[in-house]
């Protein structure tokens, strides 16, 4: 297929998948809490309602960073569907996160700053894991290009399962689920108000929601790369990971930012490092 069509389809379809997943999320969470829950399409209602609200802002630069958050996230997705460089994708994803933090910083609001600082803590936690995952893929496949992953016959999961586990942590952070929902959360929490989202309202809030849907699809897409041949297994794995997150969310309390960084560096990163070193020695044995 023509790459332009692939890109267009991906950009159009991804939000629908993301929104539906968000709907499933709310429904499942409600059921887990013994409630009936909102309709499945509720995230879409929320999205369109937000678009229709009047536009208000608290600073002149915030919207720039929100738009850049969206655009960079979409770019990441394009990289994924066009099967380009995984390492560069991770850098772009990192900047998308920074961009969102800057949106939080660019207004003089205490709650927003809370959230932005915590968003930076999140970047400090997940960015190394993603980069190490890219390195791990390279150690296994020999290339950073995603297209080469699809040429592999053995799925990555067999040799990269520690990195896969670490990626599940990233998924939790990216989905803003407990115990890592520290920068902002899906529920009204008194001390946080809405964290980094506090000053983002109306249509801008809608843009952030849209970006989060893209982000969800993107991270699940990266996870499904671990079983790229045949891809439907990978997609099933990603979906299972998603459902797992909902359970994790509902049985955990929120932890502090410091705890998150320590957890990621002491456990998740160590998993990745051991994985990479192991692969390195396997590869070396091939050379010697």
């Amino acid at each position: 297929m023509n790459p332009v069509w692939i890109v267009i389809i991906a950009i159009v379809v991804a939000p629908f998948i993301g929104g539906l997943l968000a709907g499933i999320d709310r429904k499942v969470t409600a059921r887990l809490q013994g409630r009936y829950g909102p309709p499945l399409l509720q995230p879409f209602y929320d999205f369109f309602k937000l678009l229709g609200k009047s536009k208000i802002a608290t600073s002149r630069t915030q919207y720039v960073w929100i738009i850049s958050y969206l655009v960079f996230m979409v770019t990441c997705l394009v990289f994924l569907v066009l099967q380009l460089d995984l390492l560069l994708l991770v850098f772009l994803l990192g900047f998308a996160g920074v961009s969102f933090a800057l949106a939080g910083f660019s207004t003089k609001s205490p709650y927003s700053h809370f959230g932005a600082n915590r968003e930076l803590l999140q970047i400090l936690s997940y960015e190394p894991i993603l980069l190490l995952a890219a390195l791990g893929v390279y150690a296994q496949v020999g290339s950073f290009n995603i297209s080469e992953i699809f040429k592999q016959q053995t799925p990555l999961l067999t040799s990269l399962w520690p990195i896969f586990i670490a990626l599940l942590v990233v998924l939790t952070i990216k989905m803003r689920k407990s115990p890592f929902d520290i920068a902002t959360s899906h529920h009204g929490h008194q001390e946080l108000v809405k964290g980094i989202m506090t000053e983002i309202s109306g249509p801008y809030y809608a843009l952030v929601t849209l970006t989060e849907w893209y982000e969800l699809v993107l991270v699940l897409g990266i996870i499904s790369l671990f079983w790229a041949n045949p891809l439907w297994v990978g997609i099933l794995i990603a979906f299972a990971a998603f459902i797992l997150e909902l359970f994790v969310d509902n049985i955990n309390a929120r932890m502090t930012g410091g705890w998150m960084v320590r957890f990621c560096w002491a456990i998740a990163i160590v998993f990745c490092v051991l994985n990479i070193l192991y692969l390195y020695f396997i590869n070396m044995k091939g050379v010697l």
Partner: peptide, 13 residues
């Protein structure tokens, strides 16, 4: 970098 950028951007219009 993000921390410093944040400082520069933080304004009351």
């Amino acid at each position: 970098w993000a921390k410093w950028l944040g400082r520069l951007l933080q304004v009351t219009p």
